[in-house]
Design a protein around this nucleic acid. Structure first.
Lengths: 356, 356
DNA sequence: ACCCGAACGGAGAGCGCTCTCCTGTGCGGT
DNA sequence: ACCGCACAGGAGAGCGCTCTCCGTTCGGGT
């Protein structure tokens, strides 16, 4: 009886405790818990009962130590913020004010949760923060990283690739890096917008671009121009925005001042399209009767807009889930040189509502 | 030379490797790395050099295994969502569409990052998700939880308290639970709003409340009513909103329909105030000349509003940082029964801009 | 010169888990 | 009846780290 005092340690139950209760060895309990190899159904039952009786939960640190996997991934928002604490706080707020990141998070969690994994949220807007991300991965705290960059010249992808750390990017990196990514066929999306506006009968069409130092901004503009040119519109008035609502308002105001007769606008994202609608309304133009507006993303802002936006759907949640899937694949091929590096390009889709 | 082949294991360097290079024992390296006890400066220097030479990074799993601390905390967004996958995705999107959560995240990260900690993001909107959170904490994957509830009847705080897991809430729980929290003196904030509107000369003042099944919604209404009553306004027209922009628009429309003569509105958050401003403008009222509007939160929406909102500042970032601080304190007193349970109430502040 | 204590480095025992080996058992083929 | 094989379960060696305990050294008080 008293040969081995049980429950003398106040800590949570361990495999050893479960094994003692079930009358089997640690190894067997481990096999049952992890569903590895065949175990006699009767013994399986006994182990399960013992697990329930003791309230056993596997200790993740111990498991990670031997498997060398953390079962954790880092969700990194990377980009350039300031170095001061105020600017860093502003970076986080700014990031979350865009519905885009909520959708990414949502998609990632949707994929990870059924697999009992959870993302660690990190920002990498300064050099020091970037080092923290790398250290975090190197010390095995996370098995890989999902990276969303806000700037084209973000050094993080290169750093991760050089260090051989598994990572997947949202959007193709500006410079080629041996790293997986998911992206959207931005040019095709912009083409859809152009063709829709033309089919509607618009003839004096302008565009509000995203920041042109971002690949997505460039591609959407290029795709739009190409499609317009192919239909005989070699010149398209352009105003550059910054993917924010405010910048959309300013860009729209500039366009209207220079081209008061325009009858169609393609904004490179919904937030800017929303700002554009507002300015148009304030300046007495009806949307879509006088000026048709097409957005991009199909974010929550599109439906909330007055009038509801016709927009190009970017399936961000699906893309984010695909990122997680690619990362998992990449992690399984860690030893291979460049093993498991792959990319997936999603096709956009036109969503017709009221604005065009 | 070949007695102990070095570098034969391809894996990352371990304490052992560093010790060999520095010519000391594992224990000494550990002491230097963790800054525990005094170590001869010369040896310290040698160890640091060896760490740099090997590119050593401590393995977190091994450390956690023995220290029984994960150096990780969970950031949990808790509330009621649907059970279907679509509804769960919608929950995440909805959560992030409110600038509030971005500010919380920003504040938490601001506190954790200098301490080399990073939050694990979790949602707990279904029973299964809640169980995952509890399991995550129980298996030592995180040392504690920061919980932001979106509903008053959220069972998570009680579950965590019962399980004896360290946690800190944002906002006082609807029913008393032995658990730390930070909160705002909502009543005082609402009083500031009332007094400002009255001091401005408004006499027919209405309010758009938050959801009344949320403590913050109740308290802001109660505080507003009390202050108004104290100044002789026993009756205040009320329309209930849901803390979203849309609900603010609807509430404002209802109020205007019933009380066309009103000259002041207090909205229980900025998003609803923004919606209210929009409706007022659409119905030909000038803000603030005809109707003064006061919001609550001082979120990014306040400055973005047209006109910029006079609002009651809730220092969300500071409050979130305080949550993290309280959680750390609570974790240091894990063994004490109810040790380290404490609450901090922040004082609101009126920020005067143009809307009132 | 002696002793005691403070201070610092090393040895080694685990933390809880997985996984490779090994042993025992039941079954088929010849 | 024998051998061998497949398979289930147990034993035990670590994974990389921390931390207690112990040995050694050195300084100062008498």
């Amino acid at each position: 009886m008293s040969s081995k005092p049980q429950g003398v340690t106040a800590g949570p139950p361990t495999l050893e405790d479960v094994a003692r209760v079930a009358g089997v060895s640690r190894a067997t309990v481990s096999r049952v818990v992890n569903g590895i190899r065949n175990v006699d159904p009767a013994i399986q039952e006994a182990v399960r009962a013992a697990v329930a009786a003791t309230g056993y939960t596997p200790n993740r640190a111990a498991r990670s130590l031997v498997t060398r996997r953390a079962e954790t991934i880092a969700l990194v928002v990377s980009g350039a913020g300031g170095e001061s604490p105020e600017e860093q706080a502003a970076f986080a707020s700014r990031v979350f004010s865009d519905p885009f990141f909520g959708r990414v998070t949502s998609g990632v969690i949707g994929y990870l949760r059924p697999r009992a994994m959870h993302p660690v949220l990190m920002f990498a807007e300064t050099g020091a923060a970037r080092d923290q991300v790398v250290a975090f991965l190197r010390q095995g705290s996370a098995d890989g990283a999902l990276v969303v960059s806000t700037h084209a010249d973000d050094p993080l992808p290169t750093v991760l690739a050089d260090a051989g750390l598994p990572a997947v990017l949202f959007a193709r990196p500006a410079r080629p890096v041996p790293i997986s990514y998911v992206d959207l066929a931005h040019r095709d999306g912009a083409r859809l917008a152009a063709e829709h506006l033309l089919a509607r009968g618009c003839r004096r069409i302008a565009t509000i671009t995203g920041p042109l130092d971002v690949v997505a901004g460039q591609d959407r503009l290029a795709g739009f121009r190409d499609a317009m040119a192919r239909h005989g519109h070699g010149y398209v008035p352009v105003a550059e925005g910054g993917f924010t609502r405010d910048s959309g308002e300013e860009a729209m105001a500039r366009l209207l001042a220079e081209h008061p007769g325009l009858d169609g606008v393609f904004a490179a994202n919904d937030l800017m399209a929303q700002g554009a609608c507002r300015v148009l309304r304030e300046q007495g133009r009806r949307v879509p009767e006088d000026v048709a507006v097409v957005g991009f993303d199909d974010s929550s802002a599109a439906a909330a807009c007055v009038p509801p936006l016709t927009t190009v759907r970017q399936p961000v949640e699906d893309m984010a889930a695909e990122m997680a899937r690619l990362l998992q694949r990449r992690m399984e091929h860690r030893d291979d040189p460049d093993g498991g590096v792959a990319s997936v390009i999603f096709e956009p889709e036109l969503v017709v509502r009221e604005s065009a």
